[in-house]
Design a protein around this nucleic acid. Structure first.
Lengths: 249, 249
DNA sequence: GATAAAGTGAGTACGTCGTACTCAGTTTTT
DNA sequence: AAAAACTGAGTACGACGTACTCACTTTATC
């Protein structure tokens, strides 16, 4: 089985023949630029090729399908989760928290990233580097690798889930083309019609008491993340003198 | 502003004219049936209309765009999160845990649901009922509604994130049409090529020590959920005599 | 009960998409 | 120098979402 059926195993340069006009990385960057500026749905093979100054079908020399373009985009962008200094904090809680915040920052910068990444197994070099980094933070705690994987998976599940819900509203707003006020008015008038039935006392309280103690989206993210890390730390066999509770950022 | 620009505010039956051949609910059910059997990408307006015995363009009498079909599907399926007995457990931790497990069961039954729901704001009647139920579980704890929303949001963020990662692999496998063994072999051979560089000691341990203490996907879900609920409970002002730590299923 | 308003389903058409296939030309290895 | 294997461009096909037209049917109103 020496086949190159996998994108990441396929050599970028062919063994023979002329040098490609651009690199996979350049392809990924061009796609990312389009998606950042105009949304994921603006990416088509024709459009991408035009931006690269190539023929549409020439793209298929670099990639076997549009889906592989998405793979390239995701792995490239996931590189942004990694801290730039090689030495992350020694404390594993701080390390994972840092990773979570950087992941969030990156996904907010690239609103297409979270939904795209959530739908596909992470298989590229940057994803591997990320997993290596995360696991490395848990080394020396006496955990089995299986336990480590479960732990890291839980944290990333929360991070991805939170950011997707965070983005869902803003992206829906962007797609609808309405103003925020119009959108809120629409939603609220529906909620009001439900409340009028008398069967939604909590939603009624929400419309009346909501907003007083409202946390910003940063704080809401921190809340769940810190609670999750607290719970994880509390459930771990004590190794040194640990107990993570402080909120960072 | 008496406009019906919102799907959920638009009356299903017109004020005059013949009775529609089918209901919105039937439309949603048909779409769900297709998506369950053949995946989300099998849903097209032509296909859906054919299944309903209608003309393609007739669907636009029920719905203003394909996106609204998705809205209907999501809200209908989200109804499955709700416990069928009106009285959920009194303990809020058990209540949220139950909701989480039912959400997961529903999303696994409908593999298209999690990605679709994650990408759009929840605005339908079942989503409202769900939120009402979740908030109701937190009533009487002395929390502000804003706090309750943050808390519930954190739990659902984890649930959605976990299930999406859980589904990502199985869906990619389904789409690729390969066997599980082929897929694993492909992935592993790439990981091996990375390990060969010597820069991935943790991934190396993963391939060597992984699988011994491996938890099933149910247990991995429970792990993160229980840790999160533990952390939340620990951070709450004690109201009765609480402390949630037991894992349920 | 007659009337007309407002719905109905079917058909056709347009622009866009992913991508298969062909072909002349170019670059690199042998 | 020769030839293997690439390159980019062009054309074509089937499927998609949905706008538009039209003859017909049902219902609320007078």
């Amino acid at each position: 089985m020496t086949g190159h059926e996998n994108l990441w195993m396929r050599p970028e340069r062919p063994a023979r023949g002329p040098r490609p006009s651009f690199s996979r990385a350049a392809l990924a960057q061009a796609a990312i630029r389009i998606a950042d500026a105009e949304g994921l749905e603006a990416i088509s093979m024709r459009r991408l090729a035009a931006d690269l100054g190539a023929g549409t079908m020439s793209l298929y020399r670099y990639v076997t399908s549009k889906d592989e373009v998405f793979d390239l985009m995701v792995d490239t962008a996931v590189g942004g989760y990694l801290p730039e200094d090689r030495r992350p904090p020694d404390d594993w809680v701080e390390g994972l928290r840092l990773l979570a915040w950087q992941a969030r920052r990156t996904m907010l910068r690239h609103p297409w990233l979270a939904p795209l990444a959530a739908g596909r197994p992470q298989a590229g070099p940057n994803s591997a580097r990320l997993m290596e980094t995360a696991l490395g933070m848990l080394d020396g705690l006496g955990l089995s690798v299986d336990r480590m994987l479960t732990l890291v998976g839980a944290v990333f599940a929360y991070v991805n889930g939170y950011i997707q819900s965070e983005l869902a509203d803003s992206e829906a707003l962007r797609r609808s083309g309405l103003t925020l006020a119009q959108r809120l008015a629409q939603h609220l008038s529906y909620i009001q019609s439900l409340i009028a039935t008398g069967n939604y006392p909590m939603l009624e309280r929400m419309t009346k008491e909501g907003g007083r103690e409202y946390m910003g989206t940063d704080d809401r993210f921190a809340y769940g993340l810190d609670r999750l890390l607290d719970g994880i730390a509390a459930g771990l066999p004590p190794s040194g003198g640990s107990e993570g509770a402080a909120s960072s950022r």
